[in-house]
Amino acid sequence: MTDNIKLLVVDDEERFLQTLTKRLSMRGFDVTPVNRGADAVKVADQQSFDLALVDLKMPGMSGEEVLEAIKEKHPDMEVVILTGHGSIDSAVECTKLGSYTYLQKPCETEELLQVLKDAYHKRVQRKLQLNEDKVNEMLNLAQGESALGILRKLRDLEKNKEK
């Protein structure tokens, strides 16, 4: 099930990043490790990821900023926070910014895997929901219309989206 999960891991602690990457890969994740916040945002723009595992306290761009940037550009991507800092304030802050959940270092492998799987499941569910919504929308559009009418409506919809 984890074979196809594309995961972006962001942490300035190099040793931790490498080992975690290796262990997650061994468990079937498609992991891209990044040790700078700004790089993470760049990589997320270039490739599509299902999930991101983000540290908070990093020099340069902080974890919160990464979270905010990713959520803004890729709202359907789930972001899990994994930090050594761990205060209630920052947890509340991250939840507000749209993180899936907030984990504290050191985190047990089982728990981490479970969270990542749940986050992925949520993403899949959301995608399915989105597809279903789209189908329903189309069905609504198509009701009582000729084929040409449907095409015209779809074109209008596209135009509206672009705007």
Partner: peptide, 24 residues
């Protein structure tokens, strides 16, 4: 305390991951 937790949790996380890796 909050600051110190961060400082200690990071090496702990490394220790955890390395040990877990060895087990793996």
């Amino acid at each position: 305390a909050a600051g110190v937790a961060h400082e200690i949790n990071n090496p702990l996380a490394i220790i955890y991951e390395e040990a877990a890796m060895l087990i793996d």
